[in-house]
């Protein structure tokens, strides 16, 4: 009884992960420019990968599996944002090599309210 509930949880996580992976690929095809596609691949991709890993965790309740799955999850969380950032910067420089930083609008005011008082 208990096992079948876990299996149902695992199945739903795996199906959700597959769906968000498909939507990420759809976004990479449908969104208009390189920087917008970055959003699709990073965010939807991270969500998809973590859902698949969680599904596998629910499907195989076993230390050997959990250790490896946690390592995969941590690696993906740590590396996907960094590689996306590097790629976004490369895409921006490829599109428009002369950056005019001062012409880009500044959002949220000159100083952050969280700055530690010196």
């Amino acid at each position: 009884m208990n096992g079948s509930i876990m299996e149902a949880v695992a199945l739903s996580f795996l199906v959700l992960g597959a769906a968000s992976l498909l939507i990420a690929a759809w976004g990479v095809l449908a969104l208009p420019d390189a920087l917008a596609r970055q959003h699709a691949a990073t965010k939807a991709g991270t969500l998809a990968a973590s859902l698949v890993t969680l599904g596998a965790m629910a499907g195989m309740v076993d230390t050997d599996w959990w250790v490896r799955l946690v390592v995969i999850l941590v690696l993906l969380f740590a590396t996907l944002p960094v590689s996306s950032h590097m790629l976004a910067r490369a895409a921006l420089r490829e599109q428009d090599p002369d950056e005019h930083i001062d012409e880009i609008p500044l959002a949220g005011g000159e100083r952050s309210p969280n700055a530690r008082k010196g």
Binding site: L21, T53, I72, S84
Partner: peptide, 23 residues
Amino acid sequence: ADRVLALDLFLTAAVALAVAAAL
């Protein structure tokens, strides 16, 4: 940059495939 982005997507798909193979 678009092409490398697609390679990144391959990576996510490959990790999912590897987990599927393990299961």
